[in-house]
Amino acid sequence: MMQGLELSRRYFEACLPLLQEQAGDILPLCAVGLAGEGSECLGFDDATSRDHDWGPGFCIWLSREDLARHRQRLEDVLRLLPGTFEGFPCRMTPERRMGRTGPMAMEDFYARFTGRDTPPSDWRHWLGMQEWGLATCTNGEVFFDGPGRFSAWRTTLL
C-alpha cells in the first residue's frame, strides 16, 4: 500500500515543472513538504486513514512577509494543479486543505505547535513547549527548501 507521505512527494515532483513555469521566481523563497497533523506525516497511515483528510498534497511554507506578498499568485497557480493523482483526490484546493496543506507562514506553522513564532533560544523556551507539538512540527519530510530557514528551524527543534 502506498503511504501518504510518498504519494505526496511524488505529487510535488509531478507538479514541480508547472510550479517552476508559473511561479519560478517565488519557489526560491519557499520550503515545500508535508509535516504537521495527520497519520501520513508520521508514517502511520493505513486503509482506515484513507476515509478522511488523506491524499496527495503538500505544504508551501514562506515567511509571513513573503506569503502576504505572493499568496494570491500562489493560489492562482495551485488552481492549475491536477485535482487527482495516481487515482486519489488531491488536497490542494482551499476546501480540501483543512489547514494542513497549501501556502502557510512558517512562523505560524511552528507557533501552532510550539507556542513560539521564533526558534527557541534559551532553556525557558524549551520548557514551555509540549512534546506532542515538537513531534508534530518535526515529523514528515521537507521536499525542497530554497532559503533553508524552515529546515534550519526544524533542525533546531530536532
Rank of each mutant, 00 (worst) to 15 (best):
M104E: 15
R97P: 02
S151N: 10
M98E: 04
P120C: 13
P89L: 07
L78N: 01
D108R: 15
F113T: 01
R69C: 09
Q22N: 08
L7A: 14
L34G: 07
A152E: 05
L80V: 01
D25M: 02
H125V: 04
R97C: 14
L62N: 11
C90M: 05
H52C: 11
D66P: 00
T48F: 10
G146P: 07
L62K: 06
L7W: 14
W54G: 03
E6T: 10
A31E: 03
R10H: 07
T156L: 11
L34F: 13
P56L: 09
A105T: 01
L18A: 15
P28Y: 08
V32Q: 04
R79P: 00
P120H: 12
E65N: 01
A135D: 10
L81I: 05
G83E: 14
M129Q: 13
R96I: 05
C90K: 08
G87N: 14
L78Q: 01
V142C: 15
L5T: 02
S151P: 07
L134W: 02
H52V: 09
R96W: 12
R154Y: 03
M106G: 12
L27H: 11
P119F: 09
Q130G: 04
R10T: 00
E21V: 00
L34S: 14
M98K: 10
W61L: 12
E141Y: 12
I60S: 06
W153E: 06
G24W: 03
M92W: 10
P94I: 06
D45E: 10
S8C: 13
F44D: 04
P82D: 02
R149D: 08
R96D: 08
P82L: 02
T156W: 02
G36W: 11
G55F: 14
L80E: 00
W153G: 09
D76G: 10
G140K: 01
C41D: 08
A31N: 07
D53M: 11
M2K: 04
D46Q: 09
R79Y: 01
R50Y: 00
R124T: 03
A14R: 01
A23G: 08
H52D: 13
R50E: 00
C59P: 05
M104I: 11
R97H: 09
L134T: 03
F150N: 09
L16H: 06
G43Q: 12
W61V: 02
P94V: 05
P28V: 10
T48C: 06
L74S: 08
D122V: 14
G57E: 04
D53T: 11
L80N: 02
T136W: 11
A47W: 03
T155I: 11
W153Y: 13
M92L: 14
R116K: 14
R149A: 05
D25P: 00
D117R: 15
C59K: 07
G38C: 05
R71V: 08
R149V: 02
T84S: 15
L7E: 06
T136K: 05
M106L: 10
D51L: 13
G33F: 02
D53W: 13
G99S: 12
L74E: 11
E40Y: 00
D122K: 05
R96F: 10
F12D: 12
D145K: 15
Q72N: 14
F44E: 12
L5S: 03
S151I: 08
E107M: 03
Y11V: 14
Q72P: 03
L18H: 12
G146K: 10
G128N: 11
G115V: 01
E131W: 06
A35W: 15
A23D: 11
